[in-house]
Write a protein that binds this DNA or RNA. Structure first.
Lengths: 160, 160
DNA sequence: TATTGTTATACTCTATAACTATA
DNA sequence: TATAGTTATAGAGTATAACAATA
């Protein structure tokens, strides 16, 4: 084992295993209890948070790749959870844009799932102090921002 | 927007977006520079950390589903990165078990990638104090342990 | 020409279950 | 009967590129 690489203290490893563990468990529960996938929940939670997001924007907030998202939206539209809108001919509107809204049913389903989602968060954070929770969330935000600052060009230069 | 559900402060969301951002960027770099996938790297890093793990064990340490892993190992074996072993007829050995080792090439490739992996970690953690890094890693460990304590039976009872 | 979103294709990953060989 | 691992199949997700409509 390499002296300077300790998997058990390697951030991407720690991030991946806690993330997938929560995701996998919640995913099973969503399917069994509500018949939806985790990705559908992510879309619903994101649109619930901010209604009328563009498809590209939504791809960013959900971390779902845009072509996957476009087809996912078609499925969700067919199931009556969301609707696509071409922002009508307002002055200066960009007619290429498509915005996404929750339907009434989609909104109700989201509200119904939220308590379960919060229970999972509570279980994950069990035993942590308010202060620790705040610190953790703050630091996760920092990681995200730090990675955002790394563009593709810079990333390619890393492998030397 | 529901009063008690703030996506921007929702742990699974924060975890997922920082995790996928690091993973996506590293993944592109691994493919372009070394011709391997992120999942292959995860296997290599896990076996590098502890040689001779069983397939089931390795599924746990890599968070890769076991049937996916089994086929991935076949691919990696064909590329000369790892080898499968039936622990030979030692007294009391379980002949059903298959253990995984890095080949010499697999080991060299892993060692070659480690500096890049550490650079990604450094970028993600940029600007954080030693203390903050230690806290973050500790808390991510806690999350993982908390989720491990939740078995499937308990999980099903959550949706009420 | 560039951008927004959709669609097509091939590939990877997951979920489930059947299968083998052991125990 | 149960367990470790492999394999088969179908369904999701990703990567890439081509495409239509609009800017």
């Amino acid at each position: 084992m390499s002296r300077d690489f300790d998997l058990k203290r390697y951030l991407p490893y720690l991030l991946n295993r806690s993330g997938t563990r929560i995701a996998d468990s919640f995913s099973v529960n969503l399917r069994n209890s509500y018949g939806i996938t985790l990705q559908m929940w992510r879309v619903m939670a994101a649109v619930h948070h901010q209604d009328g997001q563009r498809v590209g924007e939504l791809s960013g907030t959900t971390s779902i790749e845009i072509s996957t998202l476009s087809r996912l939206l078609t499925t969700m539209e067919a199931r009556g959870l969301v609707e696509r809108r071409r922002p009508s001919r307002q002055p200066g509107a960009d007619a290429r844009v498509v915005t996404i809204n929750l339907t009434k049913d989609g909104h109700s389903l989201t509200e119904a799932i939220i308590p379960l989602a919060l229970q999972y968060e509570e279980i994950a954070l069990d035993g942590l102090s308010e202060q620790e929770v705040a610190t953790l969330k703050h630091l996760l935000d920092r990681l995200f921002e730090n990675m955002a600052a790394l563009d593709e060009e810079d990333a390619q230069k890393l492998a030397s």
